[in-house]
């Protein structure tokens, strides 16, 4: 066909080069797909906690792959060994590639040594889904929490990661905070490495 690029055929998928990450789809295409992910999972569960867990599991599958892909492509095969390093990787590199911008903020928890928060005024997955009142505290950000957990766990920084809505004075819509609570072993190792 004149003028139409023909799909390059590779004898095997392993021969195909890794993508440079420049390809895009419409935001609405992602929104429609994500909406189906949520609706499908709603049919599989009895309660909100289970729904969030399933979304988190789906996100985890994305996170574990994104870690390897982005460290290789964006970080010149540099493996993060320190807490702030991996958090920075999530807040900047992962966020920038997946959501088109670095996260709004990365903060250390004030009450607990093992807690950190990544916040976003308008998290992508919460932009186009409005939660019905009878679903209480359900947050689609559970999917993103799963992505973060997938990255952290596989990088050797196990953590409990959850998504929360935080109302902001003067703003109609709450912001979303991804709360990361690191396992003891992570803090112990950090202390050891800091010496």
């Amino acid at each position: 066909m004149i003028g139409v690029g023909k799909m390059k055929q590779y004898s095997n998928v392993l021969d195909k080069p890794l993508s440079k990450g420049k390809q895009e789809v419409s935001l609405s295409a992602f929104a429609f797909l994500f909406s189906e992910l949520v609706q499908y999972n709603q049919t599989q569960v009895d309660n909100i906690a289970e729904l969030e867990r399933r979304l988190e599991d789906a996100g985890y599958a994305v996170g574990s792959r994104v870690l390897e892909l982005l460290c290789n492509r964006e970080k010149g095969n540099r493996r993060e060994t320190r807490l702030l390093g991996i958090l920075s990787f999530v807040h900047s590199t992962v966020w920038k590639v997946l959501f088109g911008k670095v996260a709004d903020s990365l903060e250390k928890g004030t009450e607990h040594e093992d807690e950190y928060m990544i916040s976003e005024k308008e998290l992508l997955v919460n932009r186009f889904i409005s939660i019905p009142k009878d679903m209480g505290t359900f947050n689609c950000g559970a999917f993103v929490a799963g992505i973060v957990k997938g990255v952290l766990d596989n990088a050797g920084f196990p953590a409990v990661v959850t998504a929360h809505f935080v109302p902001i004075e003067g703003q109609q819509r709450p912001r979303t905070t991804i709360l990361i609570k690191f396992a003891d072993e992570v803090l112990k190792r950090e202390a050891r490495l800091s010496q």
Partner: peptide
């Protein structure tokens, strides 16, 4: 050893007679 460096290639980490073990640790600790 993996926690002491951000490099993935760890070179030789162990020996057995004339055999050497070289290791490369990925970001996901594979």
């Amino acid at each position: 050893l993996a926690w002491t460096t951000s490099a993935m290639f760890l070179k030789s980490v162990d020996r057995f007679n004339d055999l050497v073990v070289s290791v490369y640790v990925t970001a996901g600790h594979t």
